[in-house]
């Protein structure tokens, strides 16, 4: 976050008064294939309010600003402390977690409007809830695990330098939220799982591939992963827009991961060419 952002946020918070009403404008959709519409709710803001508490307030009394009774808004959430990734949505046009979105910063004045929309690259289940199973599918495709010999007692794992641990830890904080994919021009909505195996996997998968390739036992499957990334939907499909790294809430070095895998894929390509 830049200093200007920080200052602007702080100024907004200072000016925000508890008890004011703000308008939460929500894109609603009753289910797959159903039309979308916007509904606006007036919400009274208490101290510490975030998008979650506003949606909770709406659920208890789902009446629009026009006075029409409607249904509670449906949305996905879990830990509410930005570590599970569930509550991701598009807020005022930008994809992010809704739990860490403070109303005082987004709508500091009486009558300010916040617009909530579901993520754009995943099929909508209902309202703000989307189906992100494609991300988990891609982890299977990339064999994103360490192939251990089983759970019986076989002593410790490999020793690791603090630098290597830090690099892996950073990659391993990915909470599969999908911000990087939603912001990516190359990652497109794919309603049917049939197309997932040939569609662009995106930054999340690249980060995880690098994570497991960086572990000495995980690297046993390195070539399998590189084969997938050489194929359709792999690294060559990356358009280098670098949006992914800008929206990642955990500041994971995604563009570095893509570059690193790009090099590995090239080397793998040469090796395969000369050995086959």
């Amino acid at each position: 976050m830049t200093t200007t952002d920080h200052a602007a946020r702080a100024a907004a918070r200072r000016s925000a008064k508890p008890g004011r009403k703000v308008l939460i404008r929500v894109k609603r959709c009753e289910g797959p294939g159903k039309p979308s519409r916007f509904e606006t709710f007036a919400v009274t803001i208490e101290r510490g309010a975030n998008i979650i508490s506003c949606l909770q307030q709406i659920a208890a009394n789902p009446v629009t600003v026009e006075g029409t009774r409607t249904t509670p808004v449906v949305w996905d959430s879990g830990c509410l402390e930005e570590v599970c990734g569930a509550c991701t949505m598009i807020i005022n046009g930008k994809v992010r977690q809704s739990c860490s979105c403070l109303i005082d910063e987004y709508a500091p004045a009486e009558g300010d409007v916040i617009t909530l929309e579901p993520m754009s690259k995943f099929p909508v289940v209902r309202d703000l809830w989307v189906d992100r199973s494609r991300m988990f599918h891609n982890l299977k495709r990339l064999r994103a695990w360490v192939p251990i010999d089983g759970t019986y007692s076989l002593g410790a794992g490999p020793r690791e330098s603090p630098d290597a641990q830090e690099a892996r830890y950073k990659l391993s904080t990915c909470m599969t939220c999908g911000c990087c994919l939603d912001a990516c021009p190359q990652f497109l909505l794919a309603e049917s799982p049939a197309s997932w195996d040939t569609s662009f996997v995106g930054a999340q998968a690249f980060g995880q591939a690098l994570l497991f390739n960086s572990h000495s036992t995980g690297a046993q499957l390195k070539n399998d992963r590189l084969e997938v990334l050489m194929g359709p939907g792999g690294v060559v499909d990356c358009g280098n827009a670098q949006n992914c790294v800008k929206v990642c809430p955990k500041e994971i070095p995604l563009t570095e991961a893509i570059a690193s895998l790009g090099r590995a894929v090239t080397i793998r390509g040469f090796t395969r060419f000369f050995t086959s």
């Binding site: 695990w145 251990i148 007692s153 076989l154 794992g157 641990q165 830890y169 391993s172």
Partner: peptide, 9 residues
């Protein structure tokens, strides 16, 4: 030890 082998950083 097992978690270590599974790659926990």
């Amino acid at each position: 030890d097992l978690l270590d082998r599974m790659g926990v950083p």
